[in-house]
Design a protein around this nucleic acid. Sequence first.
RNA 1: GGCCCUAUAGUUCAAUGGAUAGAACGCGGGUUUCCUAAACCUGAAAUCCAGGUUCGAUUCCUGGUGGGGCUACCA
Length: 595
Amino acid sequence: MERVLKTKIKEAVRILYDSDASDDLIQIQETRKDFVGDFTLVVFPLLRFSKNTPEKTGEMIGKHLIESFPAVSGYNVIKGFLNLEISDAWWISNFSKMLQEENLMAKCVVDQPETILVEYSSPNTNKPLHLGHIRNSLLGFSLYRILTVCGHKVIKTNIVNDRGIHICKSMLAWQKFGNGETPESSGIKGDHLVGKYYVLFEKQYREEAEDLIAGGMEPVEAKNNAPLLKEAREMLLKWEAGDPEIINLWNQMNSWVYSGFDETYKKLGVDFDKIYYESDTYKLGRDLVFKALKEGLLYKNGDSSIWIDLKTEGLDQKLLLRSDGTAVYMTQDLGTAVLRHEEFGFDRCIYVVGNEQNYHFQVLKAVLKKMDYSWSDGLFHFSYGMVELPEGKMKSREGVVVDADDLIAEMAETAKDVSLELGKLAEYRGDEKEEIFRKIGLGALKYFILKVDPKKNMTFNPSESIDFNGNTGPFIQYTYARIRSVFRKADEMNVIFNRNFIKTEKAGSKEIQLIRLLRRFTATVTEAAESYSPSLIANYCYELAKEYNQFYHDFTILGEKDPSVRDLRMAISELTARILGSGMFLLGIEMPERM
RNA sequence: GGCCCUAUAGUUCAAUGGAUAGAACGCGGGUUUCCUAAACCUGAAAUCCAGGUUCGAUUCCUGGUGGGGCUACCA
């Protein structure tokens, strides 16, 4: 419609003012709520053609449109804005088409589908997942769903950082103080058990360093010379050398962590098609570095560390391999990228990684470009903002984190408390209720995180952030559940509605308003895909649910005597539920049939 | 020091350069013989500061100020 209007207005400008207006001068937007109309033309840019006042110009164009274009049923001019009213007949016919549509998102499919690889979550194996991983994983997973309905082939991947000094710290602490404790013997979830020893290491290490400082050593030196840290470094060397005992311990502790991660991912409702391990890919990266060195793209320092010079790219020099030949983060990321391209031949590779690593990804892309991988243009860093606590940044070393498992469990618990307080679901079985509480709690958490623009930092206050009223996941779920309830009731009453003949003259202004909103869904999904922004879908769903709730409050649906009015209202309800369901599906949020 | 991001009601979030800056929570006042009151209605309450571009700036540009990040042979 917007496109047609644009053409018609161009035509009007040509006839009325004998001028050609370029597309960007014809600005059409949806009319704001407090004005009469459906679409609004901003007249100001056209004054250069009309050489007249905004009011007069608006009048002339409005008059021309109403005479030449039947879908326009009325207009009004306020200041420099021409508000156009579209006929109810057009809206109803558009709505009827949507009702018949089996796949609501068919319109979102792009002309040229791509193969897109998405990397998200990216945990370390020395500690359990926390709130930061939750934001990351939810964004990645939602992006996967959004891009998929747009027709792309999307591969979900995870890169696990399973090597390095951090995991040695957990291993060492376990060796020294663990007394053979296992997840089975202690009843502690594997990732939490390993995390416990990581924290223990840090604690013991701090104490050692403090003792050294008390003994007169400089703080920097003390931190570098604490016996525990030295031992951890030795362990890392042994690991890189393939020491069987260390490798065994490493395998064992990692397996504990992985079973813990699996459980958390499952609860969170995210998964992966392919998991990469840094312990595999760093070697590949190392080989690439050697190869590039031979080709003269890199240079060797006096201490035999290997660097790349990116000054001509506006960046700095960057270390790619340490003097002792061990790999850094960048090394393995190079290897992973090349491996992935060999395996999947992607058109785009999206890294869902926090904005603190903006520089890292600039460098990664530049290095690959320099190594002459043309596909490096398809790498995209989906840079999202940090999750902060009221007291500031999360610090896992100091134990100031919101643990993922705890949070998920607390959400369901809160959902349960709220539900019981409201006296809901009294007649349902225990396991049915638990399932609903789970959906609501998780829905609240996911929506809270995804409704925020990914680029922005967000604050999470554990005691206050999660609500079940207002602009929340449960609000949207509730709206959905109510509609489902209407249709259950309709079944009981043997009311069947006729979706094939929706009568135009029965539509009131509230119905038309909802229909306008429903129509916007596909455009919203497309925009979310193009701008990598699940939050647009979240906010759209909220707006729709809010609008529907008003409608639901003010009008009766099944109680309506006029069958064709009832048909229309049921049709609107049905489509609203479908769209809310689809929208929330794209966010990875499940909808309860009742709550 | 250099580079990047950011600043909107008390709080958490919205707003392709367009109209009177929207919501939610919280605070104040209301709505239940009726399809689920986790709802609906209603009141008070905000664009960090100073310039510039523009018919028009929360949005773009410059300079301040506050917050965050990067600038590691950490990841």
